[in-house]
Nucleic acid binder design. Structure first.
Lengths: 260, 260
DNA sequence: GCCTAGGTCCCGTGG
DNA sequence: CCACGGGGCCTAGGC
């Protein structure tokens, strides 16, 4: 009796051998990597046809599937996680159908020649942490509001309105209400329009002044123009700066600033 | 003298052997696939840290790089095409640095254990065609304007305004001007706002009536509400229908409808 | 399920 | 080069 191997790698297998390895790999929740010549037909939200050529195909244990050409960042065809695989040998060669219930869409890969099949048991529990995100910018302003401007006091974060979410609402040193919209990349006209949408909800009565503040590392000319037109303000701030600020106080829970 | 192999596949190689194969593969513009235990550090527009775990790594001849965990559609770390690779053995194992000039960002992969290295010569010249896109919806309306409504005559396509592009402008059966905005997926409030933006540019003088028509396979409740508020109209149309219509007349150039 | 907004979005198409 | 909008975007977070 064989003990189950951690990996199976087949070089230029015949279709029958490839099929067996692929089916076994999928059944055992392995990551399956195939290199070979294929066509791909997709049909669902849109539809597509990929003519014969050599590609790299990946099936993951979570039901995601990728077909990569030997160029480009993005897969030429794919299915997101939660898909179901069906492998069989037909007149077009080794046919793998990847079906997604939710979107009622399917991707059919027909392999005619196979260079490699690798069935891999990838164990991956490593933590992944991303820094310098928009969320970190928000946290940095809540933690050290002076980086927005001296005397600023945040009152709410992620306030649901209209529909949408205002990143931060607070009071400035003169007790004027301020709506803060944060962007981690250069802000454009759309970002200003987004801020306006929130201002339209908050700035209802003319008696009370409300400031609109756009926080971003940079702003486009068109964005700046509209901003000035609407009487809003721009505060330059980079996600990297914010990330640095948070590093100084990593460990202090964010909730501490809202609890007595 | 060896003839260059079409593919090199190494199972559980040592770091030195892996390094040699990877360097050769990159130099010869091959697609390099690595399975192994690694950490990844990214620094650029944002930054990230990925702790030790087993992943699938892909380097393509166009300078794109992907690190895939055994789950998810999207890579956990990556660089788009145009990156430069540098491979060396250091104290952290086999270290591959992927550098991108344009964004001044880098991804460093440190491999400690390697399950597989595959150097593949993927030849892929197959055509890829995507159907049922927004562009096809536009073409279908230009080709057979009656699918929008009987008597509709398109005048311009992709008219640049403001900034932005109005998908189609035309006259209806009663010679009323109509601004048409197309969405290939369910239209939401944002889509209606986009139409409004274009209407604000076209519908300047109150003397002339202008219709705003949103074409989409479906519309959200919020979108519909705003649409009614603004007095615009919704025309249901699916990208699939449009794709079918175009199939009937594939071959007729789009320009034919604008030339004498 | 719907809806909104973010993304190291990527990518193409203008100017 | 910058700016804007599309994408089979995908994905997370609310409701």
């Amino acid at each position: 009796m064989e003990s189950p191997k951690r990996q199976i790698i087949l070089q230029t297998p015949n279709l029958e051998g490839a099929k067996k390895a692929i089916k076994t790999g999928i059944a055992r929740h392995r990551t399956v990597v195939i290199a070979g010549s294929c066509t791909v037909d997709y049909d669902g939200r849109a539809s597509s046809k990929l003519e014969e050529g050599e590609r790299l195909i990946i099936f993951k244990p979570d039901g995601s599937a990728l077909v990569h050409r030997p160029k480009d960042y993005s897969p030429v065809n794919w299915q997101p996680s939660g898909s179901i695989f069906h492998t069989r040998i037909g007149k077009d060669g080794l046919v793998i159908r990847v079906f997604r219930r939710k979107e009622r869409e399917s991707m059919v890969i027909s392999l005619t020649m196979i260079q490699m099949v690798a069935v891999l048991d990838l164990v991956d529990n490593g933590d992944f942490t991303l820094y310098a995100t928009e969320k970190e910018m928000q946290e940095a302003i809540l933690f050290k509001p002076d980086i927005l401007e001296p005397g600023f006091r945040p009152m709410t974060k992620e306030m649901a309105v209209d529909p949408g979410f205002i990143d931060i609402i607070g009071y400035d040193a003169d007790d004027i209400l301020a709506v803060v919209e944060i962007k981690r990349v250069k802000a454009n006209k759309k970002a200003v329009e987004q801020l306006k949408k929130y201002m339209d909800v908050i700035d209802l009565d003319d008696s009370r002044r409300v400031r609109g503040i756009l926080v971003a590392p940079d702003i486009t000319d068109n964005g700046s123009e509209l901003l000035n037109q609407l009487g809003y303000e721009y505060k330059p701030l980079t996600p990297q700066e914010c990330s640095e600020i948070l590093k100084q106080k990593r460990g202090t829970p964010l909730t501490a600033f809202f609890e007595p």
